[in-house]
Write a protein that binds this DNA or RNA. Structure first.
Lengths: 210, 210
DNA sequence: TAGATTGTTAATCGATTAACAATC
DNA sequence: TAGATTGTTAATCGATTAACAATC
């Protein structure tokens, strides 16, 4: 693996799509796939796929294609999906509730290890064997359960405060659903998931298309 | 407005962020803002902001900055937020439930006009004055209520079928939460909101950061 | 007028596409 | 061997950053 080379964000964001499509292809019984075929299933050019993969090594066989099982394993390792990250969801409102029930996370090797809320009605609820804890215990529980990722699903007004506590408790990554910027030390990676961007850009394009 | 020039997707995706930050600045009582200050609040360079805005016209005053109220109106028009788009959510599972309760949509001028599900327990439910209808009535209701945007929140296996019906019923845009590609005619714009991408890329970066 | 800040042009950087040699 | 398909280099395209003239 070429560790020196900086890989583009665009490439990283495509890898999960490759991974998912390969797994689906595997379920269909496919053992070998060409960049042509994979590209067709994904809506990405074959050149793009080969270039993206080449950044990490040589996974294919010339004149043959890629072995599906092997490529799944390789991409999984690149993405770190073999590490079984633990995550905590903070804020069990409508969105948090949807997130803790989202099945694809488990399929990707992520483990829901804790949930937090301020609302006494939510606290104590059991979701798939995990209990909603009061937000006061966030530092304690995150350390205790070795949680790496914090998911922010609280209102905007509390997002920064929650981020600060998550960082203080030692998480290394934050997945932020609050529609605002959050400030964290450089050692912590933030991925923003801003739902209003998608809908607004759709509005933009609809306004232009005849 | 320079209609000829193709505006980059990156620019379009930043406009909603500008819009939101400007509205918040306005709530704080700010009447004039410089690209410097706006950039600081957003985490974007001032040059980037000026370039993005310049693609649509001259909204600022040299030596002064941008009038907040005016710029909000201008960006709102560019994004088409003044058009009061109507949208329908298909699939009132955990995610669909969260979406129909998401308040920011209304604040952006989007109107939830219909909901659909196959589950008899969901059908007939009233959410904020809108009733969940059986999916059989999708064509009829979308036409009747002049719905422009369809939101797909059904399982992957049904996403394409729902997309086909939405397109058949005449929606012009689809906001797809199912983790798969959907095929539509060129005249229909699709925005994919794939939650597993965000989490996977977070996993990637965590694996690399020391 | 002097200071500030935009809008725009030029320079740089990065990502995609095209082409093709290597090789299974 | 002939056909197919990768991996990689070169060419193009697009987006960001830097610089500065215009002007409030």
């Amino acid at each position: 693996m070429k560790d020196q080379i900086i890989i583009s964000k665009a490439t990283i964001d495509r890898l999960p799509l490759y991974y998912r499509t390969l797994r689906r292809s595997q379920e269909e019984g496919l053992e070998i796939i060409s960049s042509e075929e994979l590209g067709h299933r994904l809506g990405v050019t074959p050149e793009q796929i080969r270039k993206d993969l080449a950044a990490f090594g040589q996974f294919g066989k010339k004149g043959v294609g890629y072995f599906v099982r092997e490529l799944i394993r390789n991409i999984g390792e690149i993405l770190g999906l073999d590490r079984k990250w633990s995550f905590a969801v903070v804020g069990i409102g409508h969105l948090g509730w949807a997130l803790v029930h989202y099945r694809n996370f488990k399929a990707l090797g992520f483990h829901l290890a804790a949930m937090f809320d301020v609302n006494p009605e939510k606290i104590g609820q059991d979701i798939g064997g995990v209990i909603v804890d009061p937000i006061e215990r966030i530092e304690e529980i995150i350390k205790e359960r070795n949680i790496n990722i914090g998911v922010i699903a609280v209102p905007q007004s509390q997002a920064q405060a929650v981020a600060d506590r998550l960082v203080g408790a030692g998480v290394r990554g934050i997945w932020n659903f609050a529609p605002c910027k959050i400030n964290v030390p450089e050692s912590v990676k933030v991925v923003n998931e801003d739902l209003s961007v998608g809908l607004s850009s759709l509005s933009y394009y609809l306004g232009r298309m005849l």
